[in-house]
Design a binder for these strands. Structure first.
Lengths: 150, 150
DNA sequence: GTATTTGCAAAAGCTTTGCTGCAAC
DNA sequence: GTTGCAGCAAAGCTTTTGCAAATAC
């Protein structure tokens, strides 16, 4: 895998020709500050290429998923059934979604990568995509809760 | 947590009064051989209580989720956006979905439970729900693939 | 008689698709 | 002049909701 900001380069290096719209979409994903869903991606990408259509967004996402260059997240359906996207980076990491404040925490640990390996070996399973998500209460929200109960 | 076949008892033990329809739905979930989505659950539950309506299915699922007695899975969106349900049992386990044959493998390992604990501690996060899913190729399908390439 | 639950149909939300026209090599 | 991409609108699927009628206590 590659650093996040290399997504566009990596795609073009594979000899895939991109239209201006697709380039705008990919740049938007790689530079996004948060996990984008399709609608937000469309909105932001239009700042670079104003005529992008929803269908193009979904078709570009499909392409990047097939290439294994982005991952699709559910983020515990914190806000409905939409999907969120992020560049697949070197390290596996997991997502924690706070049901109270909506914050998303990313966390990487060697234990996760070891577990991935154990899963594959023990089940003779060739893992192509792996997703670990948890939902609950973040530190600030449990603290707030306790205070409130005093 | 409790054994799978105790779901109905556990709900009633909590003093929650159930209608015949809800009882039929819960029995269907606890006895199901596979992970059911809402439509399959409706179809099967109607064998016990023929007039159940789709809305009742969703409302019962919501109730059981709130009680923490069932978990909602995506199974890597192997077959669209539907959700699948299973009784929450004693041990955390994860799901592997084969993209080739559609098989779902369940796997439990102490490493997963340790990871859960590490996640909670390291992030001061109170985990209420955790879901680990992987997609790829199961043993039979990778074997088949190799054979085919020879 | 008050509080829940059900049924129905419609709405909602996100994603996919058919088709026509456009653009690129 | 083929091949692929974009735009548009409609359809598709699953899930949720409003409201009136039915049921339970």
């Amino acid at each position: 895998m590659f650093p996040r900001h290399e997504l566009l380069n990596q795609v073009e290096t594979r000899g895939i020709r991109l239209t201006a719209q697709r380039r705008a979409l990919i740049e938007t994903i790689q530079e996004a500050a948060t996990h984008l869903d399709a609608a937000s991606l469309l909105r932001l990408a239009r700042e670079r290429s104003p005529n992008i259509n929803r269908a193009t967004v979904y078709r570009t996402i499909e392409l990047l998923k097939k290439l294994g260059m982005i991952d699709e997240l559910d983020l515990m359906h914190l806000d409905g059934e939409k999907h969120y996207y992020e560049v697949r980076t070197e390290r596996d990491h997991l997502h924690l979604a706070c049901f109270a404040c909506g914050k998303i925490i990313e966390f990487a640990t060697p234990a996760f990568e070891r577990l991935r390996h154990e899963i594959a070996t023990a089940n003779q399973f060739e893992i192509q995509v792996i997703r670990l998500e948890a939902g609950g209460l973040c530190g600030s929200c449990t603290a707030g809760k306790k205070k409130h109960l005093q």
